[in-house]
Amino acid sequence: MTLLRALLLALLVCMPALAVSPEEMLPDPVMEQRARDISAGLRCLVCQNQSIDDSDADLAKDLRVLVRERLVAGDSDEEVRQFLVDRYGEYVLLNPRVNNHTILLWIAAPALLLVGLLALVVLGRRRRPLPGGLNADEQAALDELR
């Protein structure tokens, strides 16, 4: 019985912690799912690398409530996101948009990956032995070193 309790406790610890409290939830399940989808892509400005859906911070709660209020008011998903970007800047988005000022974020990782792969190819070609092996003079010099 204690093993079962320990297993259940371990499973509970492994589950993602959603900070949305029942009083925040919308009665309409479709609207609530829309709110969750939007919240999952918004950064908690206090926790910084956590979505507002996962954060227990007071500001994250205020943002979750604001998202739901905007949805109830009739805003589309993109209008809600844009409202928050206008208010808090693009930093509120977990995935930045591709713009002139964010293009470096989008191309830096693939560019570094290509540079790394190119370096591996160049180093791999340099380490290959020459075809045909050693000539007699080279073999003699190698034997002298041994």
Rank of each mutant, 00 (worst) to 15 (best):
M1A: 12
T2Y: 12
A6G: 00
A10N: 04
A10F: 06
L11N: 14
L12K: 13
C14Y: 13
L18Y: 15
L18F: 15
A19E: 11
A19M: 08
V20M: 02
E23A: 09
L26T: 09
P29R: 04
M31L: 15
Q33K: 15
R34L: 03
A35S: 02
A35K: 02
R36Q: 13
R36Y: 10
R36V: 13
R36L: 14
R36P: 08
I38F: 03
I38N: 02
I38L: 00
I38M: 06
S39F: 06
S39Q: 15
A40M: 13
G41K: 11
G41F: 09
L42P: 05
R43V: 00
C47I: 07
N49D: 14
N49S: 08
Q50F: 03
D53W: 08
D53M: 15
D56T: 11
L59I: 13
A60T: 09
D62N: 01
V67N: 03
L71W: 14
V72Q: 14
D75E: 10
D75T: 02
D77P: 03
Q82C: 05
D86Q: 10
R87A: 08
Y88R: 12
G89K: 06
E90P: 06
Y91K: 11
N95Q: 15
N95V: 15
N100P: 05
N100C: 04
I103D: 02
L105R: 12
L105K: 11
W106M: 00
W106S: 00
L112P: 03
L113F: 09
L114P: 05
L117S: 02
L118G: 11
L118H: 06
A119P: 00
L120C: 07
V122C: 14
V122A: 15
V122W: 11
L123Y: 03
R126H: 12
R127L: 14
P131D: 00
P131T: 04
G133A: 04
N135C: 07
A136Y: 10
Q139N: 07
Q139V: 06
A140Q: 02
L142C: 05
L142Q: 12
L142G: 08
D143T: 14
L145R: 04
